[in-house]
Design a binder for these strands. Structure first.
Length: 482
RNA sequence: GGCGGUAUCGUCUAGGGGCCUAGGACACAGCCCUCUCAAGGCUGGAACACGGGUUCGAAUCCCGUUACCGCUACCA
Protein backbone atom coordinates (compact mmCIF):
# COMPACT_ATOMS: atom_id res chain seq x y z
CA UNK A 1 0.00 0.00 0.00
CA UNK A 2 1.67 3.17 -1.18
CA UNK A 3 1.96 5.94 1.34
CA UNK A 4 0.81 9.47 0.79
CA UNK A 5 3.03 12.13 2.29
CA UNK A 6 2.99 15.88 2.29
CA UNK A 7 5.15 18.88 2.95
CA UNK A 8 3.10 21.66 4.50
CA UNK A 9 4.99 24.93 4.91
CA UNK A 10 3.37 28.17 5.92
CA UNK A 11 4.19 30.96 3.50
CA UNK A 12 5.49 33.44 6.02
CA UNK A 13 9.07 33.77 4.85
CA UNK A 14 11.33 31.91 2.50
CA UNK A 15 11.95 28.22 2.11
CA UNK A 16 14.10 27.61 5.12
CA UNK A 17 16.84 24.96 5.09
CA UNK A 18 14.94 23.15 7.84
CA UNK A 19 11.81 23.11 5.72
CA UNK A 20 13.81 22.00 2.71
CA UNK A 21 15.26 19.11 4.70
CA UNK A 22 11.77 18.06 5.79
CA UNK A 23 10.54 18.30 2.21
CA UNK A 24 13.55 16.29 1.02
CA UNK A 25 12.95 13.44 3.45
CA UNK A 26 9.29 13.26 2.53
CA UNK A 27 10.26 13.26 -1.13
CA UNK A 28 12.99 10.65 -0.65
CA UNK A 29 10.57 8.45 1.22
CA UNK A 30 8.02 8.66 -1.58
CA UNK A 31 10.68 8.01 -4.21
CA UNK A 32 12.31 5.14 -2.38
CA UNK A 33 9.30 3.29 -1.05
CA UNK A 34 6.97 4.32 -3.80
CA UNK A 35 4.37 6.83 -2.72
CA UNK A 36 2.84 10.19 -3.39
CA UNK A 37 4.42 13.40 -2.22
CA UNK A 38 2.02 16.32 -1.95
CA UNK A 39 2.46 19.99 -1.23
CA UNK A 40 0.14 22.03 0.93
CA UNK A 41 0.51 25.71 1.60
CA UNK A 42 -0.70 26.53 5.10
CA UNK A 43 -1.90 30.03 4.61
CA UNK A 44 -4.53 30.24 7.30
CA UNK A 45 -2.64 32.97 9.12
CA UNK A 46 -3.67 35.70 6.74
CA UNK A 47 -1.75 38.36 8.61
CA UNK A 48 1.59 36.70 7.99
CA UNK A 49 1.09 34.80 4.76
CA UNK A 50 2.16 36.41 1.52
CA UNK A 51 2.08 35.44 -2.12
CA UNK A 52 5.71 36.34 -2.33
CA UNK A 53 6.55 33.69 0.25
CA UNK A 54 4.46 31.13 -1.57
CA UNK A 55 6.39 31.97 -4.71
CA UNK A 56 9.68 31.61 -2.82
CA UNK A 57 8.66 28.16 -1.62
CA UNK A 58 7.84 27.06 -5.17
CA UNK A 59 11.12 28.49 -6.42
CA UNK A 60 13.09 26.73 -3.75
CA UNK A 61 11.37 23.41 -4.37
CA UNK A 62 11.88 23.77 -8.09
CA UNK A 63 15.54 24.66 -7.73
CA UNK A 64 16.09 21.62 -5.56
CA UNK A 65 14.15 19.46 -7.97
CA UNK A 66 11.67 18.41 -5.31
CA UNK A 67 8.62 17.87 -7.46
CA UNK A 68 5.27 17.00 -6.00
CA UNK A 69 2.31 15.00 -7.19
CA UNK A 70 -1.17 16.42 -7.71
CA UNK A 71 -2.19 20.05 -7.40
CA UNK A 72 -0.92 22.27 -4.63
CA UNK A 73 -3.45 22.44 -1.80
CA UNK A 74 -4.06 25.82 -0.26
CA UNK A 75 -5.28 25.42 3.26
CA UNK A 76 -7.13 28.71 3.17
CA UNK A 77 -9.42 27.30 0.47
CA UNK A 78 -10.71 24.67 2.86
CA UNK A 79 -12.24 27.00 5.41
CA UNK A 80 -15.71 25.56 4.99
CA UNK A 81 -14.58 22.03 5.65
CA UNK A 82 -12.66 23.16 8.71
CA UNK A 83 -15.78 24.82 10.04
CA UNK A 84 -17.85 21.77 9.22
CA UNK A 85 -15.43 19.56 11.12
CA UNK A 86 -15.56 21.89 14.10
CA UNK A 87 -19.36 21.73 14.02
CA UNK A 88 -19.19 17.96 13.76
CA UNK A 89 -17.07 17.89 16.91
CA UNK A 90 -19.69 19.99 18.63
CA UNK A 91 -22.53 17.78 17.47
CA UNK A 92 -20.77 14.67 18.63
CA UNK A 93 -20.19 16.31 21.96
CA UNK A 94 -16.44 16.09 21.52
CA UNK A 95 -16.13 19.84 21.85
CA UNK A 96 -17.98 22.73 23.47
CA UNK A 97 -18.51 26.43 23.02
CA UNK A 98 -16.26 28.65 25.09
CA UNK A 99 -17.28 32.22 25.79
CA UNK A 100 -14.15 33.22 27.67
CA UNK A 101 -12.51 36.18 26.02
CA UNK A 102 -8.81 36.32 25.19
CA UNK A 103 -8.46 39.05 27.80
CA UNK A 104 -10.04 36.94 30.52
CA UNK A 105 -7.90 33.99 29.59
CA UNK A 106 -4.85 36.14 29.63
CA UNK A 107 -5.67 37.48 33.05
CA UNK A 108 -6.23 34.01 34.46
CA UNK A 109 -2.96 32.88 32.99
CA UNK A 110 -1.18 35.76 34.68
CA UNK A 111 -2.88 35.06 37.97
CA UNK A 112 -1.86 31.45 37.82
CA UNK A 113 1.69 32.43 37.09
CA UNK A 114 1.70 34.85 40.02
CA UNK A 115 0.64 31.99 42.27
CA UNK A 116 3.31 29.83 40.62
CA UNK A 117 0.57 27.56 39.44
CA UNK A 118 0.43 25.76 36.14
CA UNK A 119 -2.34 27.32 34.14
CA UNK A 120 -5.07 24.99 33.04
CA UNK A 121 -8.26 25.97 31.38
CA UNK A 122 -10.81 25.24 34.08
CA UNK A 123 -13.59 24.17 31.71
CA UNK A 124 -16.01 26.64 33.15
CA UNK A 125 -17.78 27.00 29.82
CA UNK A 126 -18.20 23.25 29.63
CA UNK A 127 -20.34 23.51 32.77
CA UNK A 128 -22.73 26.06 31.33
CA UNK A 129 -26.32 24.91 31.19
CA UNK A 130 -27.89 24.18 27.85
CA UNK A 131 -30.23 27.12 28.30
CA UNK A 132 -27.42 29.47 29.15
CA UNK A 133 -25.47 28.40 26.09
CA UNK A 134 -28.50 28.89 23.87
CA UNK A 135 -29.16 32.27 25.42
CA UNK A 136 -25.59 33.41 24.78
CA UNK A 137 -25.53 32.09 21.24
CA UNK A 138 -28.86 33.77 20.55
CA UNK A 139 -27.49 36.99 21.98
CA UNK A 140 -24.64 36.72 19.51
CA UNK A 141 -21.92 36.41 22.13
CA UNK A 142 -18.60 35.66 20.47
CA UNK A 143 -17.21 32.26 21.33
CA UNK A 144 -14.65 29.72 20.31
CA UNK A 145 -15.03 26.00 19.99
CA UNK A 146 -12.91 24.06 22.38
CA UNK A 147 -12.00 20.42 22.11
CA UNK A 148 -12.74 18.43 25.25
CA UNK A 149 -9.69 16.30 25.99
CA UNK A 150 -10.72 12.93 27.44
CA UNK A 151 -8.51 13.32 30.48
CA UNK A 152 -8.72 9.86 31.94
CA UNK A 153 -6.47 8.30 29.36
CA UNK A 154 -3.17 8.76 27.68
CA UNK A 155 -2.32 9.05 24.03
CA UNK A 156 0.42 6.96 22.48
CA UNK A 157 1.79 6.46 19.03
CA UNK A 158 4.68 4.61 17.55
CA UNK A 159 6.84 7.24 15.96
CA UNK A 160 8.94 6.09 13.03
CA UNK A 161 12.00 7.78 14.41
CA UNK A 162 11.39 7.88 18.15
CA UNK A 163 9.50 4.69 18.83
CA UNK A 164 6.64 4.85 21.33
CA UNK A 165 5.79 8.28 22.67
CA UNK A 166 3.10 8.68 25.31
CA UNK A 167 1.37 11.75 26.65
CA UNK A 168 -0.95 11.58 29.67
CA UNK A 169 -4.07 13.41 28.53
CA UNK A 170 -4.42 15.17 31.83
CA UNK A 171 -1.44 17.30 30.83
CA UNK A 172 -3.17 18.51 27.74
CA UNK A 173 -5.46 21.49 28.01
CA UNK A 174 -8.79 21.64 26.27
CA UNK A 175 -7.63 23.44 23.19
CA UNK A 176 -9.43 25.79 20.88
CA UNK A 177 -10.15 24.40 17.43
CA UNK A 178 -12.20 27.24 15.98
CA UNK A 179 -11.64 30.91 16.77
CA UNK A 180 -14.42 33.30 17.60
CA UNK A 181 -14.16 34.62 14.04
CA UNK A 182 -14.87 31.08 12.86
CA UNK A 183 -11.42 30.46 11.44
CA UNK A 184 -9.67 27.20 12.37
CA UNK A 185 -6.71 26.78 14.64
CA UNK A 186 -3.68 25.02 13.24
CA UNK A 187 -4.28 21.60 14.76
CA UNK A 188 -7.80 21.36 13.37
CA UNK A 189 -6.83 22.65 9.94
CA UNK A 190 -3.94 20.21 9.70
CA UNK A 191 -5.96 17.19 10.72
CA UNK A 192 -8.92 18.14 8.58
CA UNK A 193 -6.66 18.61 5.55
CA UNK A 194 -4.57 15.52 6.16
CA UNK A 195 -7.73 13.46 6.36
CA UNK A 196 -9.07 15.05 3.19
CA UNK A 197 -5.79 14.52 1.37
CA UNK A 198 -5.71 10.92 2.62
CA UNK A 199 -2.24 11.38 4.09
CA UNK A 200 -0.94 8.13 5.54
CA UNK A 201 2.46 9.23 6.78
CA UNK A 202 3.06 12.54 8.47
CA UNK A 203 6.75 13.33 8.42
CA UNK A 204 7.67 16.69 9.93
CA UNK A 205 9.96 18.49 12.37
CA UNK A 206 10.02 17.25 15.93
CA UNK A 207 8.81 20.61 17.16
CA UNK A 208 5.43 19.08 16.37
CA UNK A 209 5.78 16.19 18.78
CA UNK A 210 3.64 17.86 21.40
CA UNK A 211 0.99 18.71 18.81
CA UNK A 212 0.69 15.06 17.88
CA UNK A 213 -1.44 13.81 20.79
CA UNK A 214 -3.90 16.64 20.16
CA UNK A 215 -4.07 15.74 16.51
CA UNK A 216 -4.51 12.06 17.25
CA UNK A 217 -7.45 12.88 19.49
CA UNK A 218 -8.91 14.95 16.70
CA UNK A 219 -8.59 12.08 14.23
CA UNK A 220 -10.34 9.83 16.69
CA UNK A 221 -13.09 12.31 17.46
CA UNK A 222 -13.64 12.84 13.76
CA UNK A 223 -13.72 9.10 13.23
CA UNK A 224 -10.83 9.02 10.80
CA UNK A 225 -8.04 6.49 10.43
CA UNK A 226 -4.75 7.51 11.97
CA UNK A 227 -1.71 8.14 9.79
CA UNK A 228 1.74 7.09 10.93
CA UNK A 229 4.02 9.78 12.26
CA UNK A 230 7.74 10.43 11.86
CA UNK A 231 9.31 13.34 13.69
CA UNK A 232 12.55 14.56 12.24
CA UNK A 233 15.18 16.31 14.37
CA UNK A 234 15.59 20.06 14.11
CA UNK A 235 18.41 21.87 12.40
CA UNK A 236 20.25 24.41 14.52
CA UNK A 237 22.71 27.22 13.85
CA UNK A 238 26.40 27.01 14.69
CA UNK A 239 25.66 28.20 18.23
CA UNK A 240 23.27 25.31 18.81
CA UNK A 241 20.25 27.56 18.76
CA UNK A 242 17.33 27.39 16.42
CA UNK A 243 18.38 28.53 12.97
CA UNK A 244 17.48 32.16 12.39
CA UNK A 245 18.50 35.30 10.55
CA UNK A 246 21.38 35.78 12.98
CA UNK A 247 23.07 32.77 11.50
CA UNK A 248 23.35 34.38 8.10
CA UNK A 249 22.02 32.46 5.15
CA UNK A 250 19.10 30.26 6.15
CA UNK A 251 16.94 30.33 3.04
CA UNK A 252 17.70 27.85 0.29
CA UNK A 253 17.55 30.75 -2.15
CA UNK A 254 20.53 32.28 -0.34
CA UNK A 255 22.60 29.23 -1.16
CA UNK A 256 21.46 29.23 -4.72
CA UNK A 257 22.79 32.75 -5.04
CA UNK A 258 25.97 31.88 -3.19
CA UNK A 259 26.82 29.47 -5.98
CA UNK A 260 25.80 26.18 -4.41
CA UNK A 261 24.61 23.37 -6.67
CA UNK A 262 21.17 21.97 -5.85
CA UNK A 263 22.47 18.41 -5.78
CA UNK A 264 25.13 19.44 -3.26
CA UNK A 265 22.54 21.18 -1.12
CA UNK A 266 20.36 18.08 -1.22
CA UNK A 267 23.29 15.82 -0.39
CA UNK A 268 24.32 18.00 2.52
CA UNK A 269 20.78 18.30 3.85
CA UNK A 270 20.25 14.55 3.53
CA UNK A 271 23.15 13.95 5.88
CA UNK A 272 21.57 16.15 8.53
CA UNK A 273 19.44 13.60 10.32
CA UNK A 274 20.11 10.61 8.14
CA UNK A 275 23.07 8.45 7.25
CA UNK A 276 23.27 5.69 4.69
CA UNK A 277 25.95 3.96 6.74
CA UNK A 278 29.07 2.37 5.26
CA UNK A 279 30.87 5.71 5.48
CA UNK A 280 29.11 6.95 2.38
CA UNK A 281 28.92 10.73 2.16
CA UNK A 282 29.00 12.08 -1.35
CA UNK A 283 25.93 10.90 -3.22
CA UNK A 284 24.03 11.70 -6.36
CA UNK A 285 20.31 12.27 -6.09
CA UNK A 286 19.76 8.78 -7.49
CA UNK A 287 22.06 7.36 -4.80
CA UNK A 288 20.09 9.12 -2.10
CA UNK A 289 16.81 7.73 -3.36
CA UNK A 290 18.24 4.24 -3.59
CA UNK A 291 19.90 4.33 -0.19
CA UNK A 292 17.22 6.21 1.76
CA UNK A 293 15.79 4.28 4.64
CA UNK A 294 13.64 5.12 7.55
CA UNK A 295 15.84 2.85 9.66
CA UNK A 296 18.71 5.28 9.73
CA UNK A 297 16.97 8.46 10.75
CA UNK A 298 18.63 10.29 13.60
CA UNK A 299 16.86 11.61 16.68
CA UNK A 300 19.35 14.30 17.46
CA UNK A 301 19.19 17.90 16.36
CA UNK A 302 21.95 18.74 13.89
CA UNK A 303 23.97 21.89 13.57
CA UNK A 304 24.16 23.40 10.12
CA UNK A 305 27.82 23.70 9.16
CA UNK A 306 28.30 25.95 6.11
CA UNK A 307 31.93 24.80 5.81
CA UNK A 308 30.91 21.25 5.14
CA UNK A 309 28.28 22.43 2.69
CA UNK A 310 31.02 24.21 0.75
CA UNK A 311 33.19 21.15 0.75
CA UNK A 312 30.24 19.08 -0.40
CA UNK A 313 29.63 21.57 -3.17
CA UNK A 314 33.26 21.32 -4.22
CA UNK A 315 32.84 17.56 -4.49
CA UNK A 316 29.76 17.91 -6.67
CA UNK A 317 31.44 20.61 -8.73
CA UNK A 318 34.34 18.27 -9.44
CA UNK A 319 32.02 15.42 -10.33
CA UNK A 320 29.72 17.44 -12.54
CA UNK A 321 30.47 17.62 -16.25
CA UNK A 322 31.27 20.98 -17.80
CA UNK A 323 28.13 20.56 -19.88
CA UNK A 324 26.03 20.26 -16.74
CA UNK A 325 27.74 23.29 -15.23
CA UNK A 326 27.64 25.60 -18.23
CA UNK A 327 23.93 26.49 -17.92
CA UNK A 328 24.47 27.68 -14.37
CA UNK A 329 27.89 29.24 -14.84
CA UNK A 330 27.05 31.16 -17.98
CA UNK A 331 24.39 33.32 -16.30
CA UNK A 332 26.78 33.94 -13.41
CA UNK A 333 29.48 35.10 -15.82
CA UNK A 334 26.94 37.29 -17.51
CA UNK A 335 25.83 38.77 -14.20
CA UNK A 336 29.45 39.54 -13.40
CA UNK A 337 29.82 41.29 -16.73
CA UNK A 338 32.47 38.83 -17.89
CA UNK A 339 30.77 37.21 -20.82
CA UNK A 340 27.63 37.65 -22.82
CA UNK A 341 25.18 35.00 -23.81
CA UNK A 342 26.29 35.31 -27.41
CA UNK A 343 29.89 34.97 -26.35
CA UNK A 344 29.26 31.73 -24.59
CA UNK A 345 27.25 30.35 -27.48
CA UNK A 346 29.89 31.31 -30.00
CA UNK A 347 32.77 29.78 -28.06
CA UNK A 348 30.98 26.99 -26.28
CA UNK A 349 33.86 24.52 -26.45
CA UNK A 350 36.32 27.06 -25.18
CA UNK A 351 34.07 27.82 -22.20
CA UNK A 352 33.61 24.13 -21.52
CA UNK A 353 37.37 23.70 -21.44
CA UNK A 354 37.72 26.66 -19.08
CA UNK A 355 35.12 25.19 -16.75
CA UNK A 356 36.94 21.87 -16.71
CA UNK A 357 40.08 23.69 -15.68
CA UNK A 358 38.44 25.65 -12.90
CA UNK A 359 35.75 23.44 -11.42
CA UNK A 360 38.15 21.14 -9.66
CA UNK A 361 39.73 23.97 -7.72
CA UNK A 362 36.52 25.75 -6.84
CA UNK A 363 34.04 25.22 -4.05
CA UNK A 364 31.27 27.43 -5.36
CA UNK A 365 30.05 28.80 -8.65
CA UNK A 366 31.23 32.17 -7.39
CA UNK A 367 34.74 30.79 -7.05
CA UNK A 368 34.64 29.74 -10.66
CA UNK A 369 33.45 33.15 -11.80
CA UNK A 370 36.17 34.84 -9.79
CA UNK A 371 38.84 32.54 -11.14
CA UNK A 372 37.60 32.90 -14.68
CA UNK A 373 38.16 36.64 -14.68
CA UNK A 374 41.71 36.73 -16.13
CA UNK A 375 40.60 34.64 -19.09
CA UNK A 376 37.68 36.82 -19.95
CA UNK A 377 38.90 40.36 -19.48
CA UNK A 378 41.02 42.21 -21.99
CA UNK A 379 43.42 43.49 -19.40
CA UNK A 380 44.40 42.14 -16.05
CA UNK A 381 45.41 43.67 -12.76
CA UNK A 382 48.56 42.58 -11.04
CA UNK A 383 48.02 41.40 -7.53
CA UNK A 384 50.44 43.37 -5.34
CA UNK A 385 51.55 40.33 -3.38
CA UNK A 386 52.15 38.44 -6.58
CA UNK A 387 54.29 41.28 -7.93
CA UNK A 388 56.21 41.62 -4.69
CA UNK A 389 56.92 37.95 -4.54
CA UNK A 390 57.45 36.84 -8.12
CA UNK A 391 58.80 39.99 -9.71
CA UNK A 392 60.97 41.01 -6.82
CA UNK A 393 64.06 41.33 -8.96
CA UNK A 394 62.73 43.32 -11.88
CA UNK A 395 65.77 42.95 -14.09
CA UNK A 396 65.78 39.23 -14.02
CA UNK A 397 62.00 39.16 -14.35
CA UNK A 398 62.28 41.20 -17.53
CA UNK A 399 64.99 38.90 -18.84
CA UNK A 400 63.08 35.80 -17.98
CA UNK A 401 59.84 37.02 -19.51
CA UNK A 402 61.56 38.24 -22.63
CA UNK A 403 63.20 34.89 -23.10
CA UNK A 404 59.87 33.13 -22.58
CA UNK A 405 58.22 35.42 -25.09
CA UNK A 406 60.88 34.67 -27.68
CA UNK A 407 60.57 30.96 -27.15
CA UNK A 408 56.81 30.98 -27.22
CA UNK A 409 56.65 33.19 -30.25
CA UNK A 410 58.14 30.41 -32.30
CA UNK A 411 56.59 27.50 -30.46
CA UNK A 412 53.77 25.38 -31.63
CA UNK A 413 50.70 26.27 -29.54
CA UNK A 414 49.92 23.01 -27.88
CA UNK A 415 50.42 21.64 -24.39
CA UNK A 416 53.21 19.21 -25.13
CA UNK A 417 55.23 21.50 -27.37
CA UNK A 418 55.00 24.44 -24.99
CA UNK A 419 55.95 22.36 -22.02
CA UNK A 420 58.97 20.91 -23.76
CA UNK A 421 60.01 24.27 -25.00
CA UNK A 422 59.76 26.07 -21.66
CA UNK A 423 61.35 23.32 -19.62
CA UNK A 424 64.21 23.36 -22.06
CA UNK A 425 64.48 27.10 -21.65
CA UNK A 426 64.65 26.75 -17.87
CA UNK A 427 67.48 24.28 -18.39
CA UNK A 428 69.34 26.62 -20.69
CA UNK A 429 68.97 29.48 -18.28
CA UNK A 430 70.15 27.27 -15.47
CA UNK A 431 67.03 27.88 -13.44
CA UNK A 432 64.25 25.69 -12.10
CA UNK A 433 60.93 25.33 -13.83
CA UNK A 434 59.18 26.96 -10.91
CA UNK A 435 61.39 30.02 -11.06
CA UNK A 436 60.35 30.44 -14.64
CA UNK A 437 56.67 29.54 -14.39
CA UNK A 438 55.76 31.66 -11.42
CA UNK A 439 56.76 35.04 -12.89
CA UNK A 440 55.09 33.95 -16.10
CA UNK A 441 51.93 33.09 -14.18
CA UNK A 442 51.81 36.63 -12.82
CA UNK A 443 52.27 38.03 -16.30
CA UNK A 444 49.45 35.93 -17.66
CA UNK A 445 46.93 36.09 -14.85
CA UNK A 446 48.16 38.71 -12.41
CA UNK A 447 47.90 36.05 -9.72
CA UNK A 448 50.08 33.54 -7.90
CA UNK A 449 47.55 30.77 -8.25
CA UNK A 450 45.98 29.38 -11.38
CA UNK A 451 45.55 26.17 -13.30
CA UNK A 452 48.69 24.62 -14.75
CA UNK A 453 50.72 27.16 -16.66
CA UNK A 454 50.42 25.36 -19.99
CA UNK A 455 46.67 25.09 -19.61
CA UNK A 456 46.64 28.81 -18.97
CA UNK A 457 48.68 29.51 -22.09
CA UNK A 458 46.53 27.27 -24.19
CA UNK A 459 43.30 28.73 -22.87
CA UNK A 460 44.46 32.28 -23.28
CA UNK A 461 45.67 31.56 -26.79
CA UNK A 462 48.83 32.62 -28.53
CA UNK A 463 47.96 36.19 -29.30
CA UNK A 464 46.66 37.10 -25.92
CA UNK A 465 49.42 35.27 -24.08
CA UNK A 466 52.18 37.00 -25.99
CA UNK A 467 50.49 40.35 -25.56
CA UNK A 468 50.27 39.84 -21.80
CA UNK A 469 53.91 38.90 -21.54
CA UNK A 470 54.75 41.96 -23.60
CA UNK A 471 52.64 44.12 -21.32
CA UNK A 472 54.33 42.68 -18.26
CA UNK A 473 57.75 43.45 -19.64
CA UNK A 474 56.67 47.00 -20.42
CA UNK A 475 55.19 47.36 -16.94
CA UNK A 476 58.39 46.18 -15.32
CA UNK A 477 60.59 48.48 -17.39
CA UNK A 478 58.43 51.45 -16.62
CA UNK A 479 58.56 50.70 -12.92
CA UNK A 480 62.31 50.38 -13.27
CA UNK A 481 62.66 53.81 -14.72
CA UNK A 482 60.43 55.37 -12.10
C1' G B 1 6.87 25.85 36.47
C1' G B 2 4.37 21.48 33.81
C1' C B 3 4.83 18.00 29.87
C1' G B 4 7.62 15.84 25.95
C1' G B 5 12.15 14.95 23.27
C1' U B 6 17.54 14.44 22.87
C1' A B 7 22.55 13.30 24.70
C1' U B 8 29.54 9.52 20.67
C1' C B 9 35.54 14.00 18.46
C1' G B 10 34.55 21.62 17.77
C1' U B 11 30.72 19.91 13.70
C1' C B 12 27.94 15.86 10.64
C1' U B 13 27.87 10.88 11.94
C1' A B 14 29.03 4.92 12.18
C1' G B 15 27.81 1.99 16.28
C1' G B 16 21.91 -1.28 18.06
C1' G B 17 26.04 -6.34 24.61
C1' G B 18 31.76 -8.88 23.21
C1' C B 19 34.35 -7.40 16.17
C1' C B 20 35.58 -0.58 19.99
C1' U B 21 43.00 0.28 22.48
C1' A B 22 35.24 3.66 19.32
C1' G B 23 35.29 3.90 12.50
C1' G B 24 34.42 7.70 8.47
C1' A B 25 33.73 12.89 6.93
C1' C B 26 34.17 18.47 7.64
C1' A B 27 37.43 21.81 10.06
C1' C B 28 42.55 22.16 12.01
C1' A B 29 48.10 20.79 11.84
C1' G B 30 52.10 18.27 9.36
C1' C B 31 54.09 15.43 5.28
C1' C B 32 53.92 13.57 0.12
C1' C B 33 52.74 14.80 -4.97
C1' U B 34 53.89 19.36 -7.66
C1' C B 35 55.15 25.15 -12.01
C1' U B 36 51.33 27.84 -8.16
C1' C B 37 46.46 26.94 -6.22
C1' A B 38 43.14 23.23 -5.83
C1' A B 39 42.24 18.04 -6.13
C1' G B 40 44.40 13.49 -4.38
C1' G B 41 47.40 10.37 -0.87
C1' C B 42 49.44 9.71 4.07
C1' U B 43 49.92 11.10 9.29
C1' G B 44 48.37 13.64 13.85
C1' G B 45 45.51 15.84 17.79
C1' A B 46 40.25 15.35 19.03
C1' A B 47 34.39 12.05 21.64
C1' C B 48 30.94 7.59 24.26
C1' A B 49 27.55 14.16 29.64
C1' C B 50 27.57 12.32 34.94
C1' G B 51 26.06 8.64 38.68
C1' G B 52 23.90 4.16 39.74
C1' G B 53 22.21 -0.54 38.23
C1' U B 54 21.40 -5.28 34.80
C1' U B 55 25.26 -8.64 32.81
C1' C B 56 30.81 -12.95 32.80
C1' G B 57 30.98 -8.42 29.69
C1' A B 58 27.82 -1.82 28.11
C1' A B 59 29.02 3.60 23.89
C1' U B 60 25.14 -0.01 23.16
C1' C B 61 19.73 -2.24 28.00
C1' C B 62 17.21 0.10 32.69
C1' C B 63 16.84 4.12 36.43
C1' G B 64 18.24 8.84 38.24
C1' U B 65 20.90 13.53 37.67
C1' U B 66 22.51 17.35 34.57
C1' A B 67 22.46 20.05 30.08
C1' C B 68 20.17 21.42 25.69
C1' C B 69 15.81 21.76 22.57
C1' G B 70 10.50 21.86 21.75
C1' C B 71 5.43 22.58 23.31
C1' U B 72 2.58 24.80 27.06
C1' A B 73 -1.77 31.05 22.21
C1' C B 74 -8.57 32.55 19.76
C1' C B 75 0.58 31.47 15.92
C1' A B 76 1.81 27.87 12.42
Amino acid sequence: MADRLRFAPSPTGYLHVGGARTALFNWLYAKHYGGEFLLRIEDTDKARSTDESTRAIFDGMEWLGLSWNEDVVYQGANLERHQRDARLLLERDKAYRCFCTPEELDQRRKDAEARKDTFRYDRRCDRLSKDEIERRVAAGMPHTIRFRVPDDQSTTWNDLVHGDITFPNKDIDDFVVLRSDATPIYNLAVVSDDIAMRITLVMRGDDHISNTPKQIMLYQALGAALPRFAHLPMIHGTDGKKLSKRHGATAVGDYQHLGILPEAMLNFLALLGWSPGNDIEVMSVADMIRLFSTEHLSKKAAIFDPKKLEWMNGQHLSMASAERLLPVIAPALEAAGLASRADVDARRDWFLRLIDLLKIRARTIDDIVRQATPYLRDSIEYDSDAVAKQWKDRDSAVQLLSAVRDRLASAEWNLAAMEESLRQLADTLGTSAGKLFQPLRVALTGLTASPGIFDVLETLGRERSLARIEAAVAYLRKRDAA
